[in-house]
Design a protein around this nucleic acid. Structure first.
Lengths: 345, 345
DNA sequence: GACTGGCACTCGAAACTCGGGAGTGCCAAC
DNA sequence: GTTGGCACTCCCGAGTTTCGAGTGCCAGTC
C-alpha cells in the first residue's frame, strides 16, 4: 500500500519537473501530449492529465485559461528548486573563463565591475553585486587633506581595499599643524580596528584635543562616523539590463517595474539582504520577493567573501521562468571565484 | 519677387515647425487637416499639402506609408533644432528643485550620482554623466599604504576631490621605511601639478632612488601613470533607464540596442565625446550618432565645469521624437548648476 | 484500482474580411 | 499662389471564421 502511493507521488513530481523544464525552455504552456512526447515518462497522456489535475489542485501548476496547457506557479518553482533539481556545475571552460575574467582587476572597484559584467554575461540575466560591507572590515589608513582653507577631504582606506571619501566644511580656516596632528592621532587610535569598534574609539580621540580645536575635530569625527556606518554599506553595482529584453513582450508590465527597481538601490539591498551566507544560495521566487514590482521575477543570491563571514552579497534578477539549476550554479561559482580573488588580498 | 519667395519659405518652415511639434506631442503621423486645425496657419489644408510635398521633396519629412500623415526625418529635426526653435528656460520652481537637489552632496561621487538622477528625472529620459576628467585636474595628494607585505595600495587624490586607487603587487616584501620615503618624495614632486605634467615629473622621481629599490619604485610609478591617464577618464554614470519604456512599443528594435549601448561605456564616451564646451549644447540626431544601435535616438550633451575649460560632459539619450526645446533647456540648466557646485570646491 | 483510449467540448490564436476614415495628389477655378 | 473638390489609396480596427492544442470525463482493460 505504502509502496503504491509512493510511486504515484514520485511520478507526479516527475511530471512537475518535466513541466518546469519544458516551460523554462519554451516559455509556452505545456500540455499532456507534448509532455509525454518530449520526456519518456512511460505513461499515457491521459494519466499525465490526471496527475496534472492533482498538481493543479495542490497549487503547483495553473492554466492561463481553460483548454490551454499548464504553467508552474510560484509554489511549483519553489518545489522544483527545493526538491526536484540539483545545482548545475559549470563546465571547465566556463570556470576557466571566470577566473581569467576576474584576474587582472586593478582595484576593488574594478573587481566589482568585472564581477557584475561576468555574472550578467554567463547567466544572461541582470546581475547585482553589493560592494563589500564596511562594518566587517577594518581601518587600514585615514588620510586628511586640506583642499581649500575651509574644506577638508577625508579618505578612509579599509582592509578590503575600499576607499571612502568625505568632504568636511569648516567655519574657520584650518591650521595645517592641527590637521597633521589630527591625522596622526586618528591613525594611531584607529588603524587595524574593525569599523564597528572604530566608531567607539573615535569618541576618545576627540577628548585628547584642546577645547579650542574641538569644533573642527568634532566635524571630522562626525563625518568619519558616517563613513564608518550606513552610508558606505549601500553601494551596489548593476549590469546586464539589456538581458531584460528576453522577458517576453509584455513590456510595460514586466520590464518597466524591474528597470525601476534597479534604479532604487535601497530595494536591491533588500532583495540581496538576507543572502549573506556564502555557503548557501538564497532563491526568492515571484511573490516571495519583498517588492511588488518584482512579482514575475526571481532573485538568486548568495554571500561572498571569506568562508566564515561574508563581506557582501551578489546575485541576479530574472524572470520566474528561468533555468534555475544553471543560474544557481553560475551564481555560486562566481561568488566562489570572487571570494578567492578577495582572499588573496 | 524676393519678398514673395521669402514669404513662401517662411511658411514652409512654419509648417515644418508645426509638424515637428505635433508629432513630438502625439507620436502619430500628422496630416494637413489636423495641422491646420491645431495651429492657426491662416491657410487651407490644400496649401499645406503643397508645402508638405515640397518639404518631403527636400527631405525634411516623410510618409511612413502612402496615404498617411507625415513625420519628420532626421534632417527635419536637425532644421528644427538649428533654426526653428529656441531653448526653453526652466521655470523658477524647476530651478529651485535643481539646486536643492544638488546641495548636500557629500563627495564628488555623490554629486555625480545626484546629477544623473536629477537629469533623468526632469528630462524623463536616460541620463549620462561623465566623471570629471582627470587630465584637467591636478594632484592634491598621493598616499601609499601597505596592505600586506607584498601588496601596496596607492591612492591618488585630485583637486576635483576625486580619488583614484590602484593595487600594486611586489616581488619581495617591502620595507616600511622605503614606503614612507617614497610617499614623501612623490608628494613633494607632484603635489599641485596637473595630471598631464605629473606624468613627466614621475620619471625624475624614480632616478632619486638607489638602484636596489628601483624595481619597487618603478612598479609604483607605472601604476600611478596608469591612474593619471586613460583608465581614469572613462568613468561614467547612467540613470533613468526606466524611461526607456516610453520609447514606443517596438521593443526589440528600439529599446534593446539602447540598453546595450548603455552598458558599453566606451560607446557612451564617444557619444558625449565632442560636447566638451560648456557654452554650447551638442545635439546628435538619429543617424548622426556614431553608433548604429542608436539610429532612432538623439543625444543632447554639453560640457560642465569651469567656464573656460570643461571638466567633463553630461547629457541625455532619448528618442528622436523628443521635446528638444525643453530637453535642451534642462540639460543646459543642470550643467550650469553642477558647474557651480563644483566651482565652490 | 490504476492506467488507457476515445470522445465531445472549450477557447485562444491566427487568418480573413470588410467598411470607415484620414490622408493624399491632382486639377480646375478664383 | 491659393483653394475647394474629387477620386484614390491604404492602414486600422472590429467582427467573423477556422483551426487545433488541450482538457475533463468515461468506459474499458489488465
Amino acid at each position: 500500500m505504502r509502496g503504491v502511493v509512493r510511486v504515484l507521488d514520485e511520478r507526479k513530481l516527475d511530471v512537475l519537473r518535466a513541466i518546469v523544464e519544458d516551460y523554462v525552455a519554451t516559455h509556452e504552456p505545456v500540455g499532456s501530449k507534448t509532455l509525454v512526447d518530449r520526456h519518456n515518462l512511460g505513461v499515457s497522456p491521459a494519466t499525465v492529465r490526471n496527475d496534472m489535475a492533482a498538481l493543479e489542485e495542490e497549487g503547483y501548476i495553473t492554466q492561463p485559461h481553460t483548454s490551454a496547457g499548464r504553467i508552474p506557479t510560484d509554489a511549483g518553482y519553489r518545489l522544483f528548486v527545493d526538491k526536484l533539481s540539483t545545482v548545475k556545475s559549470l563546465s571547465a571552460a566556463e570556470k576557466k573563463a571566470i577566473s581569467s575574467f576576474l584576474v587582472g582587476a586593478v582595484d576593488l572597484d574594478d573587481v566589482v565591475r568585472r564581477t557584475v559584467r561576468l555574472l550578467a554575461q554567463i547567466t544572461r540575466q541582470v546581475a547585482i553585486v553589493q560592494y563589500p560591507t564596511l562594518s566587517r572590515s577594518s581601518v587600514r589608513h585615514i588620510e586628511v587633506v586640506t583642499m581649500t582653507p575651509r574644506r577638508l577631504l577625508l579618505v578612509l582606506i579599509t582592509s578590503t581595499g575600499r576607499v571612502e571619501q568625505r568632504i568636511v566644511e569648516t567655519h574657520e580656516d584650518v591650521d595645517e599643524q592641527l590637521i597633521a596632528d589630527l591625522r596622526s592621532r586618528l591613525n594611531t587610535a584607529l588603524t587595524g580596528q574593525r569599523l564597528t569598534d572604530a566608531a567607539t574609539s573615535l569618541a576618545s580621540v576627540t577628548e585628547t584635543f584642546a577645547p579650542a580645536d574641538r569644533s573642527l575635530v568634532a566635524a571630522v569625527v562626525t563625518s568619519l562616523l558616517e563613513a564608518f556606518t550606513v552610508e558606505g554599506e549601500q553601494r551596489i553595482a548593476v549590469g546586464g539590463a539589456a538581458n531584460l529584453t528576453r522577458y517576453g513582450d509584455d513590456f510595460e508590465r514586466n520590464v518597466k517595474p524591474v528597470l525601476e527597481a534597479l534604479e532604487e538601490h535601497v530595494i536591491l539591498l533588500k532583495l540581496l539582504g538576507e543572502a549573506t551566507n556564502p555557503q548557501t544560495l538564497t532563491v526568492r521566487i515571484g511573490h516571495e520577493n519583498p517588492y511588488e514590482g518584482l512579482a514575475t521575477t526571481s532573485v538568486v543570491a548568495t554571500g561572498y567573501g571569506s568562508k566564515s563571514e561574508a563581506l557582501a552579497t551578489l546575485g541576479i534578477v530574472g524572470p520566474t521562468h528561468m533555468d534555475y539549476p544553471s543560474t544557481m550554479g553560475a551564481v555560486r561559482a562566481v561568488a566562489r571565484y570572487v571570494s578567492q580573488i578577495l582572499a588573496d588580498s
